[in-house]
Amino acid sequence: MDEGNEIWFGSDGNQTPSRKSFLSEIKDGVTPVTIWPYDEVGHNHESNSELKKLDLGGLFTNPKPVRLIERILRLVTDRDSIVLDFFAGSSTTAHSVMKLNAEDGGNRKFIMVQLPEECDKKSEAYKAGYKTIAEISKERIRRAGAKILAGECHKDWNKDVGFRVLKVDTSNMADVYYSPDQVSQGSLDLLVDNIKADRTDEDLLFQVLLDWGVDLTLPIRKETIQGKSVFFVDDDALVACFDLRINEALIKELATKEPLRVVFRDDGFESDAVKINAEQIFKQVSPHTEVKAI
């Protein structure tokens, strides 16, 4: 390292040696140092001011300044990185990711994780209608995104400030606690529907996306075809219909879309014959489609 002029011995040549960092080796010309002064990365007063500009002032204690997180992002991410924050809080990280994308045209994505921690009933946040920290976090992302879009943006930025909110829950599938000897012929009808009664079509869709390993951020649209609600994920990545009484005419029409995957409710077919024929129809019309029933 000494031969490569990579060691510095201080201005007089007699100090404790340290490794040199050259700008040519540092991404975007930023050299990380141990101490970051507040005039470069902000302070608590600045972070509170940032929330005030979003009409969220006083709702969160000790938020981090955007400039601080943005400095970290410049050091450790590239333009296509995924940034994960397990303690979202007021979502300064999400705000910083969107702001940096707007500045350099990047396509960074963020994943914010926040427990539904309840706000103190005496707090300004609770008085403003926010029952949990997660609600403040989501609202900050919405308002920050709108503010960033209203300002100057890099010409190559896709201006994507959208996000999805997902919550951890139990399976959508109904729990069965009976052994075969406890089930009578008369009780079999109660076990036909294997999906919990309080689950929506969207709940089922996202479970299928997780089961199949499909990207949860892909665009989703909903169409009505032959009177049934049909979801299209990224056009043809996945097609899903969780309505009841599905007939062969609908199955044939969906097969002409030639999706990579298609999924139905196990009890959603008009008859057992339709259920059996569904896979054969796809084999004939769209043989590459993976067919599944849940």
Rank of each mutant, 00 (worst) to 15 (best):
D120E: 14
S96K: 06
I133V: 15
S179T: 11
A174L: 14
K109W: 02
F110V: 07
D120F: 06
K138I: 14
V113T: 04
P180R: 10
V161T: 15
G105Q: 01
S123R: 05
L149C: 06
K167P: 00
I72Q: 09
Y130W: 08
E118D: 07
S81L: 11
E117T: 11
L115C: 10
S91G: 05
C119L: 13
N107P: 01
I133L: 14
A150E: 15
V83C: 10
C153E: 00
V161R: 11
S91Y: 04
H154P: 02
R108H: 07
G151P: 00
K127V: 10
T92I: 09
P116W: 10
D78A: 04
V76A: 04
F86E: 07
I141W: 01
R108M: 14
L100H: 09
I148F: 00
G129M: 08
D156K: 12
K155M: 03
G145Y: 01
Y126K: 12
A94G: 15
H154T: 03
D156W: 00
E117N: 09
C119K: 12
R164E: 08
R142F: 06
K121A: 04
V113D: 03
A174M: 15
M173W: 01
T77F: 10
D160P: 01
I69Q: 09
S81N: 07
R164L: 14
A88T: 07
M173P: 00
A94W: 06
P116H: 09
T92Y: 03
E152F: 01
D169H: 10
